[in-house]
Every structure is written in C-alpha cells, then in structure tokens.
Design a protein around this nucleic acid. Structure first.
Length: 480
RNA sequence: GGCGCUAUCGUCUAAGGGUUAGGACGGAGCCCUCUCAAGGCUCAAAUAGGGGUUCGAAUCCCCUUAGCGCUACCA
C-alpha cells in the first residue's frame, strides 16, 4: 500500500500548482488504495502565517478530495534533530562555524559553484566539539562524498534515471545555527519516519532529490520512489507568481468565479497529464482509475490566461461540460448560493424549473446571475424600447405583435407546448414571421433579446408576470 | 557562471522508428433554429534549428538555440 504526502509550507495562499500536486498525490493514493497524508511543512517559523494556513485549508476543502492523515512538521522537530545528530555521529555531517552571511541580492554575480568551506569540513572532531561546547553557533552540514568519482542516482517515475556527480553537490545544511532543521532534513526525516513510499512533487525539487537520496542513505533507510511533476507556468514562460499574475494563481479565484470543484480538478489534471485516449471530461472516479505516473508529461504546462481574463478558456469549457452533465437537483443546488448572493428571492420549485432552461447557457454557476435575472427580479432592469423592435421591422410591428399576443396569453393554458401552439398561430394571424412575432414578446418578458427558449420561459414566469411585462412594454412603445 | 531538466498547431495534448502527424480548447465558416446558447459538419493551424544513425526519424544520438529549475542557516 503506497503512502504519499502533500507537504505545503504555509507561506502563501494555496497556489494552483500546489493544488495540482495535491490532486496527483491524491489520485495516486486512491488509485492504489493507499494513504494520503497532509503534512504542513512549517519549519521556517519566521515566514509562516496563519492566513496562509487558513487559505491552504480553505482551498483544499473546496477541492473536496480529503486526506487520511494530517501532521504538522513543527511538532516533529525533535525527530528532525535526532536524525541530524545520527547523521553527524556516523560522520556524514560536520559543524560549520562560519558566521551567517547577509543574504546576497544579486545572485548572477557569483561565479563558480559554492561547494563547501574546506576549513570547516576538515575541522578535527575534538576542536569541533570544543567550539560547540563553548557555545559558538554552527550550521550542521552534510558531508557530501566528494572527490571519489561518486555518482548519485535515482530512478524518477516521470523523468527516468537521474544521475549527478557528487562533486557537483554542495555541502547543504541539515541544521541551522538556531538549532532548527532545514527543509531537506525535516522533509527526509519525516518521509522516512512516516513510511512515505512515493514522493510526488514539483519538478523544482528534481535537483534537490540528489541531496535527499544522500540523506536517506546516511539515515540508513531505502529512498522512496520519486515522481516529479512538470511545472505550471504563465503564457510568457515565467513561473506563476502572485505578484506578477495576481488571482490566476489562487484556487479560490476559480471557486469565486463559480467553478464546480471537480471540473476544476479535471482541468488541473489535464495540465501535465493525459489519459492518452483523448478523453477530456472525466469524473473524479474516472480520473482515479486512469491516473498513473507514466501518463505524466515532462515539459512545463502553460496556464492560458490573459491580462483581461484570468480564466483559462479550456477550464471554462470543461466546467460547462460538467455543468451540463449534472442532474437538475445538483445543478440547482450549486446555483443557489450564487443567486442568493445576488439577492434574488429564490423559490426551490421555481429554481428547479429554471435550471434546465439555463444549463446550456452558463459556463459557471456565477453566470446564472446575469442569465436568469428576469426570472427572479420583480422589476425588469431598464431596457431601451428599441430592443422591442424586431429584425426588419419597426415600432408599429412591435406594437402589433404585443397587442396581438396579449389576449392570446390571457386566454392560453400556461404550459410550454400549449403556448407554442397559440403563439405560432398568433404569428400567422398577425401576418408576421415567427421570429418577428416572438422577439417583441421575448424582450418584453425577459428585458433583452438573448434569452432561454420563449415558451418554456413564459411558462415558468406565469401569466400574471408575463401580462404585466407586456403591458409595460406596450406603454414604453406608446410613450415615444 | 556551474549542474540538472525540457522542446509537436496560439494553448492543453496523442503518436515513442513506417500515420494524409490524431483529439480538445480557442478562431473562421456552414447547418439546425423563435433569440442566445447547446449540438452537428467543414476549414485554418505544429514536430525550434543544424548535423548524424537508418531503407525510413516528430520518435534514437550529437551540437546549437530557447525556456525552466537548483546552486540559502526558504521551502
């Protein structure tokens, strides 16, 4: 049974790239009936924020996938320290008493790779012990097996065999001078302790993995299977960042835009992974069954957004597909919060009647607000009387149509099929083409030209509302 | 700078030695039609460049170019 983990650090909101990493881990776990672990990697106390933690949980809850275990890295520091010390005792690490350097702004200026501080690496143990005992601060560094023609290797489930000469790996830190573990140490110690079998994470960790392989070796435990994921990037090829790309990078943006969580999950899955059989719209179950690390790509995927529109058009299309596949009840339930937020007075039965009329006209839950407004508003939004005038017609024609339709509607059975018969008949009698006859009625009743099918709409609206709105429209035409 | 990874239509991708290089989004057009949608059909649109290997390369190898990542006492 595989054990996988998603390990975000709470230093920002839930990024869509992180969300995708979570999803892939979840899919892998569920596909293999394994365990999904959420581990908050919060060892950098200075940069952690509660807001970030809240945002991460908010985002993950919205995704509606869930997890089996939850851990907080900050509560496991003793394990990390013990592990680091064990590595030290085995001689795989050394104390580095070099004072911390101020952060360097311009990295490009540095020439040649920094590998180690030779004086510190070779410091005799007794001197090292003496200086440590005297309270001199130090970083604990990994003693990378250098100058032995040693190659560090691992098999990546996505990128294949990876090799790197140990001579190109720097003596990275395990413990900071404040005694807290670094990411590398904490992560590996926890992965080993938690029995993580597969590490599925962003490709930005691909080269870090050589260090991790070394740590696992020093710890005396077998390394897990690694599977690195291509990154999500902006249309210009740069990486997604909050500062430069704004709301595109936050999963809450999609929730607020009225996305169905599973549709968004579906979209994210298609970025960097493919079922290889041309399927695109997939349910959670189908994704679960189809997912494999072999299906993951190796090149970064562009999230296709623009300055004006933060939403990828394909995500929108996919969401529309999912919406169309939903049962009326479920779609109505999804719509409800957005309609209520717009202060519409929503009656359950009425909403259920409206749902099939708008489902093919909306791509997100939120789009129902402008599309279905006239069903809920007592007073139509103001519209120009010129809207009432049909194609190739004039004001007189609009009046003819409305005056003709009114008594018919007054007498008709208010049900779509009957209304259609009556109004088609009415068009003939009025000597108008159906389109010319229907448009003034539609605009009178809906307040705009583009609306759901007329007869069903009239049926849902009811006789009183329709007659009143037609009277208002006739008034509009007569007064100017 | 060093090391690593990547490169198929505008975007997401399929094809992994032999295909007219396939699908989807988006775009254009046509059909359907009471409007708008939805749906159906059609069209435009790609193997980064250069060398090899091979009867044959998008596919394997090398070089170049470009992008990305790592190179912190961040994760």
């Amino acid at each position: 049974m595989p054990r996988v983990r998603f390990a975000p650090s709470p230093t920002g909101f839930l990024h869509i790239g992180s969300a995708r990493t979570f999803i892939f881990n979840w899919l892998y776990a569920r596909h293999h009936r394994g365990t999904m672990i959420l581990r908050i990697d919060d060892t950098d106390l200075d940069r952690n924020t509660q807001e970030s933690l809240t945002s991460i949980f908010e985002g993950l809850r919205w995704l509606d996938l869930g997890w089996d275990e939850e851990h907080r890295q900050s509560e496991r520091i003793e394990l990390h320290r013990r592990s680091a010390l064990a590595i030290f005792e085995k001689g795989w690490a050394y104390r580095d008493f070099t004072p911390a350097e101020p952060a360097v702004e311009d990295k490009s200026r540095s020439e040649g790779a920094w590998l180690c501080n030779p004086g510190m690496r070779d410091l005799p143990r007794d001197e090292s012990d003496r200086r440590a005992a005297s309270g001199e601060p130090f970083v604990l560094r990994f003693r990378v097996p250098r100058a032995q023609s040693r190659t560090v290797s691992f098999e990546d489930a996505v990128y294949g065999t990876q090799n790197k000469s140990a001579d190109d790996i720097e003596d990275f830190a395990l413990l900071r001078s404040n005694g807290l573990p670094t990411y590398h140490m904490a992560s590996c110690a926890d992965d080993a302790d938690m029995g993580i079998s597969h590490i599925i994470r962003g490709q930005d960790h691909l080269t870090n993995t050589f260090k991790h392989v070394l740590i696992f070796e020093a710890l005396g435990v077998p390394a897990p299977v690694f599977g690195h994921l291509p990154l999500l990037i902006a249309p210009d090829g740069s990486k997604l960042s909050k500062r430069r790309h704004g709301p595109v990078v936050s999963v809450t943006t999609y929730r607020d835009a009225g996305f169905l969580a599973h549709a968004y999950v579906n979209f994210l899955c298609l970025l960097g992974w493919s079922p290889k059989d041309d399927r695109e719209q997939m349910s959670r179950q189908e994704l679960m069954e189809a997912f494999s690390l072999e299906g993951v790509n190796r090149s970064n995927a562009v999230v296709n957004f623009t300055e004006e529109d933060p939403i990828d058009p394909k995500a929108l299309w996919l969401n529309a597909q999912h919406l169309r596949a939903m049962p009326d009840e479920a779609l109505a339930a999804g719509l409800l919060p957005y309609l209520e937020e717009a202060n519409y007075l929503v009656d359950r039965q009425k909403l259920l009647a409206i749902t099939p009329l708008i489902r093919e006209r909306i791509r997100t839950f939120r789009e129902a607000v402008p599309v279905a407004d006239f069903f809920f508003l007592d007073q139509l939004a103001p519209y120009s009387s010129s809207e009432l005038i049909p194609q190739k017609g004039d004001k007189a024609m609009a009046l003819t149509a409305l005056r003709h339709a009114r008594p018919l509607l007054e007498a008709a059975d208010f049900e779509a099929e009957a209304l259609e018969a009556v109004l088609r008949d009415g068009a003939t009698q009025a000597g108008l083409k159906t389109g010319q006859f229907f448009q003034p009625v539609r605009v009178a009743v809906c307040g705009r030209k583009n609306a759901p099918p007329l007869f069903e709409t009239l049926g849902v609206l009811g006789r009183d509302t329709c007659l009143r709105r037609i009277d208002e429209a006739i008034g509009k035409l007569e007064e100017n």
